[in-house]
Write a protein that binds this DNA or RNA. Structure first.
Length: 312
DNA sequence: CCCCAGGCTTTTC
DNA sequence: GAAAAGCATGGG
């Protein structure tokens, strides 16, 4: 049965940039109806469309999530509970006036609260390669190992794949799986090991405290797994565990820290030591509780406005 | 041909 | 300790 509703929100949102800024790699656009964005959240196929700055149309044909709860479900996913005024402190705009003007168009970017397992695997695919290759890997994992389902949109059935469960990925042959990891066998093996960790309960994202641990402890815990370093650990925390204080530092973040914030630390090569130094530095001009939320807005703005990247 | 992409691990000084 | 090489592929 089709369920459709319009939800109104307090803040503005840029839905497309929020979904396609590279925090989730799983949203697709139906070429016949490019204004509709389709994906599976949890195990529920969902369709979203932006109606105005602060209204969205949401659709679902699934009863996995009780449909009457869908608005709350979507609100949580899009972090609509987070007010814009928390993200940057009041001291920020006067200190960085030029940057603040450019950032204006990007403040409506929302961070998604995604599934932690999906987030972990997606960002393990993101080592030293371009965004399109990352997206290719994640969608191949979905299509090769994910359960197939459908969403009905305007009478047309669109096929979709649910992201595979930890148990499914735990059971695959790493060598065969490497066709999904850009032929990188080490990465394939690391992902299978991580999936086994989740399937066997050694990695437990539902563990009480996982979302309250001090950031350094959480990061060190996640880094126990092969293929996960500081950056990927922080991405899992930020996008998968709703830890908006986690501040992942990659090549782009390093670049904008130098150019926009005159960080001399950012001139050094990115090592564990300089990573921690940059992390501490960023918290002096970003609100520490929302450093990663702000960081993702800066990241997306940097890539689009300065690097002129079209595909993201 | 080069260098760079949402890095991490191993080896070498 | 810090630096360098290896991993893999596509695009500028």
């Amino acid at each position: 049965m089709l369920y459709k509703e319009v939800i109104r929100i307090n803040n503005e949102i840029n839905l497309k940039d929020s979904l396609f800024s590279g925090q989730s790699f799983l949203w697709i656009i139906d070429t016949d109806r490019p204004e509709y964005y389709v994906s599976v959240i949890g195990r529920s196929p969902v369709v979203l469309r932006q109606i105005s700055d602060n209204t969205l149309e949401i659709q679902s044909t699934s009863n996995t999530v009780r449909n009457r709860l869908l608005p709350d479900f979507i609100s949580n996913y899009l972090s609509l509970d987070i007010d814009h005024k928390y993200i940057f402190s009041e001291h920020f705009p006067p200190l960085y006036q030029e940057l603040w003007k450019i950032l204006g168009d990007y403040l409506s970017l929302r961070i998604l609260r995604q599934d932690p397992f999906e987030t972990m695997i997606s960002f393990m695919c993101a080592q030293g390669i371009g965004m399109h290759l990352i997206r290719k890997q994640v969608s191949m994992i979905q299509q090769c190992y994910g359960e197939k389902t459908f969403i009905t949109l305007a009478g047309k059935e669109i096929p979709l794949h649910i992201f595979p469960t930890p148990e499914r990925l735990a059971a695959v042959d790493p060598l065969a799986f490497s066709i999904c990891t850009n032929n990188n066998r080490i990465r394939a093996s690391n992902i299978v090991l991580a999936a086994q960790g989740v399937a066997e309960g050694r990695i437990n994202f539902d563990h009480p405290g996982m979302r309250e641990l001090p950031l350094s402890e959480l990061r060190n815990t996640l880094c126990q797994n092969r293929g996960i370093g500081f950056k990927i650990a922080d991405c899992i925390a930020l996008f998968g565990l709703g830890r908006f204080d986690a501040f992942p530092i990659d090549t782009h973040v390093k670049q904008y820290l130098e150019k926009w914030f005159n960080s001399t630390t950012a001139l050094r090569s990115l090592t564990p030591a300089s990573y921690l130094a940059l992390d501490a530095e960023a918290r002096t001009f970003l609100n520490p509780d929302f450093a990663g939320y702000a960081g993702h807005i800066l990241f997306h703005c940097w890539r689009k406005e300065v690097k002129k990247l079209r595909s993201f």
